[in-house]
């Protein structure tokens, strides 16, 4: 589904990704771990099409297309979803309206009919319950004045409504209390399916107890320095990153 080959990218002339290789197939869950500043969010942004990054080398293919050629919204239309590390506030924009506009924009781009108001309401209520998001937040402005945890739940709500092909979760677990972590993980697990792939960026092994990854990758200085099964995460939890980084240099 997603194939990244030797991806090198920079911001303002500063190299951040230094040759990433990653293969993600439908049905798989990949965890990406790695120290602060190693380039995890940068990778997530480049995959979802954020401006401001220069790709200097490498290729990214997604569902048989050159992903880097596509506009940001076109990627969303083709099923890429990014749950952001820092969800953005949109003052004055009603949360539900935003979600509905978003759904309809994606549907329209796919040549599907817009969702009618009644089924939308039904769905959104049902999903909000699943992620334990207070219904009052649906009526407020997008993320505006939401607590850290509420913002993350709202991201998961959007993800569940939009049913992406490839979901990238950038530290969705950071700042969540244990119950919230549980709920968010349950939400993600509900989405797991043979035709969908997930990339989960996290610092904590704990999330991976709930969302069991098929693969774990360690990113350091813009490179994947180690890949393995879920046991790798446990090892990291115990030893930290340094033993790997030293190994990488050697």
């Amino acid at each position: 589904m997603l194939s990244i080959k030797n991806l090198k990218a920079s911001v303002d002339g500063k190299a951040i990704l230094n040759g990433i290789d990653l293969e993600v197939n439908a049905g798989e869950v990949h965890a990406i771990m790695g120290p602060n500043g190693s380039g995890k969010s940068t990778l997530a942004h480049i995959l979802s099409g954020r401006d401001g990054y220069t790709v200097n080398d490498g290729e990214v293919h997604y569902l048989g297309q050159n992903l880097l050629d596509l506009e940001t919204e076109a990627r969303a239309h083709r099923g890429i979803f990014l749950a952001m590390q820092y969800p953005v506030e949109l003052p004055g924009v009603n949360n539900m309206t935003f979600l509905r506009e978003s759904m309809n924009a994606i549907r329209k781009a796919r040549g599907e009919a817009e969702i009618d108001a009644v089924s939308f309401m039904k769905q959104v209520r049902h999903r909000a319950k699943q992620v334990k998001l207070d219904e009052k937040l649906l009526k407020r402005s997008v993320n505006t004045g939401f607590s850290g945890g509420e913002k993350k739940r709202n991201e998961i709500l959007q993800m569940m409504m939009l049913e992406p092909q490839l979901a990238i979760l950038d530290e969705t677990d950071s700042g969540l209390d244990i119950d919230a972590l549980r709920t968010v993980a349950d939400g993600v697990n509900l989405l797991r399916s043979p035709d969908r792939a997930l990339i989960v960026v996290t610092h904590y092994q704990r999330l991976l107890d709930y969302i069991e990854p098929d693969f774990v990758h360690v990113l350091a200085s813009g490179r994947v320095i180690r890949s393995g099964g879920k046991a790798l995460a446990l090892e990291l939890e115990e030893k930290g990153y340094e033993w790997l980084q030293e190994g990488a240099v050697a």
Binding site: E73, A76, M84, E89, F98, S102, A105
Partner: peptide
């Protein structure tokens, strides 16, 4: 920029 990216990532055009 953040707001525009957020919206576009959710499938909206920049104008929308």
């Amino acid at each position: 920029e953040d707001q525009l990216f957020y919206c576009r990532q959710r499938g909206l055009t920049e104008e929308n």
